[in-house]
């Protein structure tokens, strides 16, 4: 049963990379079920991340947000700050796709805080970039310019010319 779980996970990833997102979802749901049977929280967390990602490419953004929220909850239980940051970043982007900019900002700010805590300047730069766009969408140009300036400063520091 444990090997079946790993095989379903790998099958889900392969379908995903081939662009077969429906099949990827089915495999990752099987993987999730087996992870739960074993109480394997890390595998459960991975399955939710993979399900969230596949749902984005199916255009099912609300479903993706639910999967990413489960990822976030488990990342917190597992005390994995890097995965928590990644889940917040995914949620920020997914809420942007849902055009819920207040929620997008809420999660991008959470991502920003963790990136700062982990001294992840590239993550911090991405958070500022995303926040600038979300504040622009809301018409809050003062905050938008603040984050665009932060994004520029960090991009210069890390040598990212694009």
């Amino acid at each position: 049963r444990a090997a079946q779980g790993r095989a379903y996970g790998n099958l889900g990833n392969t379908h995903y990379l081939l662009g077969n997102f429906r099949k990827a979802v089915r495999s990752h749901q099987e993987r999730l079920q087996i992870a739960r049977e074993f109480g394997d929280k890390s595998a459960e967390r991975r399955a939710y991340s993979n399900l969230g990602n596949a749902s984005v490419f199916l255009g099912e953004f609300a479903v993706a947000a639910d999967h990413y929220k489960r990822t976030l909850y488990l990342a917190r239980q597992l005390r994995d700050r890097a995965v928590e940051a990644q889940a917040c970043y995914s949620l920020g982007n997914t809420y942007t796709l849902l055009q819920d900019y207040e929620k997008a900002i809420e999660y991008h700010l959470k991502h920003l805080l963790i990136a700062q805590e982990l001294t992840d300047r590239i993550g911090e730069g991405r958070a500022c970039w995303s926040l600038g766009n979300a504040y622009t969408a809301l018409g809050n140009h003062e905050q938008a310019v603040h984050f665009a300036e932060k994004h520029l400063e960090i991009s210069k520091e890390v040598g990212d010319r694009s």
Partner: peptide, 26 residues
């Protein structure tokens, strides 16, 4: 921001490009 515009938010596009190759291995 229309729904079509959302798909073209540069930071979201950049994220989706990375996401397309992101598969968390067993």
């Amino acid at each position: 921001f229309s729904s079509m515009h959302v798909m073209h938010v540069d930071s979201v596009q950049h994220w989706m490009k990375d996401l397309r190759l992101m598969a968390e291995c067993e």
